[in-house]
Structures are given as C-alpha cells and as structure tokens.
Design a protein around this nucleic acid. Sequence first.
DNA 1: TTGGCAATCTGTAACGTTTCAGTATATTGA
DNA 2: TCAATATACTGAAACGTTACAGATTGCCAA
Lengths: 347, 347
Amino acid sequence: MDRRATEKDDETSATERPTLKTLAFMTGLGVTTVSRALKDAPEIGAETRRRVQLVAKQIGYRPNRAGVRLRTGKTNVISLVLNTEHELMSFVSDIIYGVTEVIADTPYHLIVTPYSRSQDPLDPVRYLVETGSADGVIISRTQPNDPRARYMLERGIPFATHGRTDMGLVHPYHDFDNYAFAGEAVRYLAGVGRRRLALMTPPVGLTYYGHTVNGFADALSEVGASEVPFNTVSIDHTIEQIRMRTAQLMRRDDRPDGIISSAAAATLAVVAGIEDAGLKLGRDVDVVSKQSSEVLHLFRRELLVVNENFRLAGSELARAVLGWIGGAAPGSLQSLSKPSEVLPYRG
Amino acid sequence: MDRRATEKDDETSATERPTLKTLAFMTGLGVTTVSRALKDAPEIGAETRRRVQLVAKQIGYRPNRAGVRLRTGKTNVISLVLNTEHELMSFVSDIIYGVTEVIADTPYHLIVTPYSRSQDPLDPVRYLVETGSADGVIISRTQPNDPRARYMLERGIPFATHGRTDMGLVHPYHDFDNYAFAGEAVRYLAGVGRRRLALMTPPVGLTYYGHTVNGFADALSEVGASEVPFNTVSIDHTIEQIRMRTAQLMRRDDRPDGIISSAAAATLAVVAGIEDAGLKLGRDVDVVSKQSSEVLHLFRRELLVVNENFRLAGSELARAVLGWIGGAAPGSLQSLSKPSEVLPYRG
DNA sequence: TTGGCAATCTGTAACGTTTCAGTATATTGA
DNA sequence: TCAATATACTGAAACGTTACAGATTGCCAA
C-alpha cells in the first residue's frame, strides 16, 4: 500500500516549525530513525547520522519542549525559589545572572518561583514538585533543619541550597564561609585596637546565623575582646529599625567600638545610626561589612569591607543542580567560598 | 461491549498525579466531558459541572502543562528578557517581583531570558519566538526604533516594553516620565539658585535618553539656566569611569553648580567624583538623582532624590502582556508613571 | 406518531516526542 | 547451504490535553 505518510499532513510551505516528521520526510527516513540519529544512538549508521544532523542544522530544527516533556517527563527547567520580601536586591540580580551564565549553553530555562512572607516557604517547593514543573530547584535562606531540603530529598528531586543545612542529610550546596568572615572581621578589629565588638547578625533561624555568631564568638575569645550584645535587630529588619536600634546602642555608655555587619544594605543603616548618635566612623567606631558590589567605599571611605560574590554562588548552585540531574553524587556537589581579606579603602 | 476503559492503565494506588483520565474514571464520565466541565463549557449540565469540579479540587487535580502546551501551543509562560551587563541591580530584583506579584494567581510562570553584551539584543527574542517558548515577552532598554518590538509585532507575539518606542507602531508599554523628571529637577535646582547644570544621561540610544535630554533642555531654557555639557559618560559606564570624568568636570573653571543623575548607582560615583575634586555637596553643587530604593539619603543627606518604582513597572508590564494575550487592544495597555516631587532629606 | 431539535454526553484523533517490539537485509559460522 | 546474528532501520503506542464530529436522550410541535 502506497502510504506516502507525511505528504498529507506536513506542510512543505516551510512556514511551520520543523518537527521530526519534517526531517523524516526530507531525509526519507522514519521519525524513529531521525530521533535516534539526532541523539547519537549507536544503532544508526554513521552516514545516516551525519546526514540527519546536517539537515537538522540546515533547517534549524529545535526539539519541541512540550513533546519531550510530555513523553519523558523532563522539563529542562531549573527553578529558583525566592522570598519576595527578604532577599537582598543584589542577591537576586547576581544569583540570576550566575545561574543563567551556566545554563546558557544547555537546553535549560530558568523560572523564578516567588513566595511571600505570608506563605510557608515549603509551599512553592511543594508546588514545583507536585506539578513536576522543574527538573531541579535552587533555594536560599537555608535553615539548619530545613523542611524544604528534607521534602525534596524524600521526593528525590535534585536541588541545591544556598547555605548549608545541619540535619545529617547530604545534598548539594554552595555557601560562603561566614564563620571565617566573622573571625577575620574580629581579628582585624582587634588588630586596630578595638575591644568591644557588636554583631549585626543574619536573620535568626538561618544556618549562616549560627556560623556567623560562632565565628564571632570564637574569635572574640581568641583575641580576648568582648561582645556588646546587639540582638534586637538583624539584617532582615527595615532600614529604619536598624538605624534606630543602632543609634540607641551607640548612645549607651558601654557602646561598642567595633561593629561587624552581615550585609551592605544593613550597613548603610548602621552607619546612619552611628552618625545619628553623634559619633564618627573610623574614630569612635570601626565597621566591617560584607558587600556584594563595590559600593560601601563610595558610601564611607572609613568602612572596612569583605566581598561576597553572589554571581559565583549562582553559578556554583546551577552547576550543582545540573550535576545532580546528570547523575553525580550529591555529596560531591558542595562548595564553600572563602571570604576575601578585610579590605580598607584603597586610594 | 464491556470496555472498562481506564481500569487497565490507571493506577488506583493514587501515588501518581491525577489526570483527566483519573477524574473521568472517578466520576464515571468521559475525559472530554471532564475537560469541558473544568473549564465551564456551556454544554455541560450544571450538576455534572459541580460534581467534576468538586472531585478535581478534592484530589488536587492540576492540568499537565506539557499536555496543554503540546495540544494548544499555549505555554503559560511570560519571559523577561534582561541584559546581564547593563541592567541596574535594583531594576532586576524589583521588576521580577512586580511581575511575579501579578502572575501569582494565574497559571503563568516567569522565565528569565538573559543576553550579554556580545549578543545582538534581537537574539533572545528571536529564540523565544522561533521556539514558541513564551506566550508573552517583556523587554527593557527600549530604543526609539527597536528591532525587537518590530520583530514581535510582525510575528504577532504579545509583548510589552519598559520604555516607549518611536516607530509609529502601537504596542503596550510602561514608562517612567523622564521628560518630567528632568524638567522637575532643573526647576528645583534653578529654584535654589543653581544656574549651570550638567546631566548624567541614560545610555545613548535608548528612548529615555531622548526624553531625559529633551526635558532637561526645555526646562533649562524655561528657567534661563545653562547647560554644562557632560556627554562623555552615561549611567552605563563603570563606577570608576563616571567618578573620574566627574572629577575632571568638577575641576574645570566652568564647572556646573547642579547635576542631574538618571540612576542611583551612577550618583554614588558622581558624588565620589565631586569630592575627589575637593568640592562639597550642597555647598558647591547640588545633585538631583533618581533612585528606586531609599538609599541615597543614607549615602549623603544633601542629595535630592526623585523616586522611580520598578516594582510598579514590573506589575504594569505583566498586566499589559497578560491583557494583550487576553485579547485587549495593545493601544489600551500603555501607562506612564509620573515622577514624585524632588525630595530633600527629611529629618 | 413522527420528525426535529436542544441538551448532554462521548470516542477518536492530533499535537511532537521517545520507547518498544519488531522487520529487512547483509554477514557470519558451521 | 542453512541458521544464527549483527546492522540499520521502522511503525505503533503512549504521555495528557483539546477539538471535532458524532451519539443518545427527552421534549415539543406538527
């Protein structure tokens, strides 16, 4: 029976997007052969393979994502889950660019999945997993005992966390060594004669809160300096709250002569509070702050900075997720980035 | 013939995600009926409709995106196209949140499509359109004669631009009134006695460069002030370049006594340059700057600011794209946001 | 009674892909 | 020569959805 199979349904008019059927028609092969030839399957003849790939390239064939996804369940999507209230602006921007840099020459797309204060952080993750919307997930604001990581581990969906967990479970992560950061900062301040130090902490509850606080405490006792408690605010608070609390702190008799801040945005507020109290940066108090872009030295030359590279974090996280998807061992996809030295303003 | 159709292939074990077939089995209806009942089609009985929708809600049915996309071509995806080198950090973060806010209770996902300096800005758009990867697109860095807008208009894919075009073609946009901003700024500076004004411009080539320059020029002649040319840099340049050029400018005899800056990041550099030249903000020169978050007054109290809300821009752009997708007239989906007054530091 | 019609519901095909179970031909070993 | 086997290819089915073209029922007008 003469079934010229594709003739009746495939437009030769070339205005439509080419499919496997189009390629099959053009090469005179079956769609199965074309499909396998394109992915270098072994049972396809070398010449056929080359021929198919040539034609595919010529006419600009691109696999239909919906077709692949429906058939295989593979979405070719990585989802970045973000808190719309509490992420740092520079974090969002840089991490996205870091991720896109890595997935640029892969078939992956990046989708951004937001959640707000009012929601359980588990909600967006559950949504992604239940609807099978992504092959891999990146989360931030990681907690020592993180329900999201536990959940994804149970469900077997590849993910990576920005920050570590502490649940005895192994999964990919990228983290900045905040223990080292706080330690370096304390030692630097001690080195310039500061003895009474306060810490503008990360949000209580996140893993790196603990790292930072521990690095701070350990280094304090190492150098024999003392802590001025400052735990009524964290970098999650508003500019106004931080500013006010800092001013209150700095008006006390036992005020600190050194402050360590975990985020650039908070540092702006801290400095404002210091100045509200009539004190001068670099004279009455030194401030060491993390920053992710070179902005603090423009703000006040007296600030001491340590750089944290969020774009790198994004790249590492993307690499980790892709690695896990690709079958690598989760335990081999962990990275820790060391802080730079404490940097004073350079001319 | 007793064909208990779904029995052999549908797991009753409920571990799998429910599909229309599952619903059909549970309700005893055909999958067509279920499909139509879920989307309130008219030829479905009222009771059946309610029954199907109840069961669907109970078991947490969610349509399979790949199925819908394959069958209908509808992706339920909005793509935000971003330049990875030249977007402002706050822009990226805020616009994403603005968009996600609007699409949160729709089936839409947001994908971020990046492009870098080395690429033609048309590339990512062409990719999206050719692969049918999105139902709607949002672009920024809009030009008066924008090939991307022209291309998408030709291809009939809904989009919205951040910034206007000037090609005689109508499409949705959201823009900030930079003509008004520059005018307000000039008038304010003139009002405090400044007569020789310079403009730190937007990137040459983008539409709002023209708007800003025109607003500046028109207001200058209105108030009888004069311009000090400062066109060797724009806000796209690096901090270091802007700082150096500003210092050069401020060391000249005919230096400006007022500067208007189109972006907060650039303003930091401008102020650094002013201070490099040994001049004092508020005394020797006043600076009016746009900002998108309340950061400049912490930086220097003497700065004068005008607020531009990028989160609003994101929301408006998302609304515009969804509106166009929904069949609204493109011409009815345009919005212009007016600048706030020029705001000095308030105690 | 009959034909027509509205109201509800249904099976089949198709979207583009991959997998399964082949088929046809050439090649090899005995 | 024959069977076994390797090589290179193929059609059909399935993923979950929607559109199309019916099918069934009951009701009403003639």
